Amino acid sequence: MSERRLEKDIELAADPEQVWEAIATEPGIATWFVPHRVEPREGGTVGQDYGSGFETAGRITAWEPVSADGRGRFAYGSFEPPADGRPDYAFEFLVAGREGGGTVVRFVQSGFLDGADWDGEYDSFDAGWSVFFENLRSYFAHFRGLPAQNVVTMGWTSDTAHTVWPVLYGGLGLTGRPDLGSEVTLTPDGPGPITGVVDVMTEEFLGVRSARGLHRFGAEGSEGCGVSAYHYFYGEPVDAAALTQEWQAWLTRHLPVPAGTADVR
């Protein structure tokens, strides 16, 4: 097994106890990641729902709520070692309060396999976690204390991300890749319009922050492409089930990518 690890330090303008709630409890994780089931104890089960029937489950290996010194630890891994030739991922979140205020989360994902065949998977996790942790920062900055309702949908196409993105932009009513910090109005065919500020713009993800929540679209892969549309609605209730159906139908309409789409990004 490789010693290859993915490590990130996330500085947050929140107390350690608030951060612990966000990274280790069901309602907290839903505000920035995906819906979870969490048995709050070491040895308990953790389950994740990425949408469209894609779910994972594992065992909590560390459950240490924030103590008097402002530190806590939450970790989980697979129930059993995966089949031969597959990575055995483990995830760890270390919470530490800072002098003068604020909190740092030290995140470590281990279990990656060596070799060029796995570089793409490593890069995909890296890009994905960067967006999710940006969600966490944005939650504390703009929606702190509000519960989230999740709309999570996924799709797949044999085309590449380079050919998928122009189709997604068009499906969102955009003429092309928007600038970070610009104000846009998304007009998808089906779900209602979304007006907000572009707060994420990378090769893999487009993110818009509206007055009601966070809206994330992803397309990753050079040999087949996974596509996602994740939404976090805060405060005022929405019909999450109906919106999930609408966004899944939107993905289905635009995948597979029509023949002749330009291979540009």
Rank of each mutant, 00 (worst) to 15 (best):
T175C: 01
T185F: 08
E204K: 09
G221L: 11
V198M: 14
I194N: 02
V184H: 10
G196H: 05
V197C: 07
G173M: 03
H162P: 00
G176P: 08
G181C: 06
M201Q: 15
S210D: 04
P188Q: 09
I194A: 03
L180M: 14
V184P: 09
V167R: 15
L168F: 03
D189R: 12
W165P: 03
H215N: 15
F217Y: 11
M201E: 15
E183S: 09
F205R: 03
W165D: 02
G176Q: 11
V164D: 05
G170A: 14
G213K: 10
M201C: 13
P188L: 08
G181M: 05
G171C: 03
L214A: 10
T195Q: 09
R209Q: 12
D189S: 13
V184T: 10
G207M: 04
L180C: 12
G224D: 13
H215R: 09
D189Q: 11
E183A: 04
T163H: 06
T187V: 11
F205E: 03
G170V: 03
V184D: 10
T175M: 07
T195D: 06
R216G: 08
V167N: 07
M201V: 07
M201S: 15
D179K: 14
I194L: 14
H215M: 07
P178S: 12
V184N: 09
V200A: 06
T187Q: 11
I194P: 01
R212P: 00
G170N: 08
G224E: 12
G190W: 01
G207T: 03
P191M: 01
T185L: 07
V200S: 05
R212W: 00
R216E: 14
L206E: 06
T175N: 10
G218R: 01
S222E: 14
M201I: 10
H162G: 00
L214T: 06
L168Q: 02
V197N: 09
R212Y: 06
E183G: 00
M201G: 09
G192H: 08
L206C: 04
P166H: 11
T163M: 07
T187I: 04
L168E: 03
L168D: 01
G171R: 01
L206H: 05
L186E: 01
G207P: 00
G170E: 13
W165V: 01
G173T: 05
G213T: 13
F205Q: 05
I194T: 12
T175F: 04
L206P: 04
D189K: 09
G207N: 04
A211W: 02
V184G: 09
G213W: 07
L168A: 02
Y169H: 15
